[in-house]
């Protein structure tokens, strides 16, 4: 079920497109639903398709194509670390090792308490601030060091 707040946000996105092009809002609708629920369940994807009046498969195609959508629960804080070339050159491996040790999980795993999940990301377009990671797809943390990672994790508790 989409919340009233989510519907309001989706309706705002719909104003950006012609009236008969409701499918265009599917990406933002999925994003809005995901940020509300933490992930996209099959029911949620169906609800969005229903609200936009598009086939379920059209919404599912989009949800599975773009890699920032989560089709499984990811815990409260999803941490995505970029390991692409510019970050790699500035030792993103050390950041990954530190996070994995600190959280006790590998990539695509969730901590037992459901608080953290770790993902490997592709280029986030902020390579000047490498190494970097993003939290819940919205908050970018740049110029990371193991100490800085500790401070960020502490705040997320």
């Amino acid at each position: 079920m989409l919340s009233e707040e989510a519907i309001k946000k989706i309706d705002y996105e719909l104003t950006k497109y012609p009236d008969d092009k409701r499918q265009a809002a599917v990406m933002s609708a999925l994003r809005i639903a995901q940020s509300e629920n933490g992930w996209l369940s099959p029911e949620c994807i169906s609800d969005i398709a229903g609200y936009l009046g598009i086939p379920k498969i059209a919404a599912l195609e989009v949800a599975t194509f773009y890699n920032m959508y989560d089709l499984e629960p990811v815990g409260k804080h999803k941490i995505t670390v970029c390991t692409n070339i510019s970050c790699m050159l500035r030792d993103s491996d050390a950041i990954v090792d530190h996070l994995q040790e600190k959280l006790g999980i590998g990539f695509n795993e969730v901590t037992e308490d459901g608080k953290f999940c770790l993902k490997e990301g592709e280029c986030m377009g902020a390579c000047g601030g490498a190494p970097l990671m993003s939290v819940n797809n919205t908050k970018m943390h740049e110029f990371l060091t193991p100490e800085k990672v500790d401070a960020i994790l502490k705040e997320l508790k």
Binding site: Q23, A25, M27, V62, N67, C123
Partner: peptide, 27 residues
Amino acid sequence: LYAVHGYGAYICGEETALIESIEGKKG
């Protein structure tokens, strides 16, 4: 003029993939 937000697909930097994405499809 409107802002549209991608959701993680390098290929959408290709202009026709980007257009598909604006239309709410796979890029």
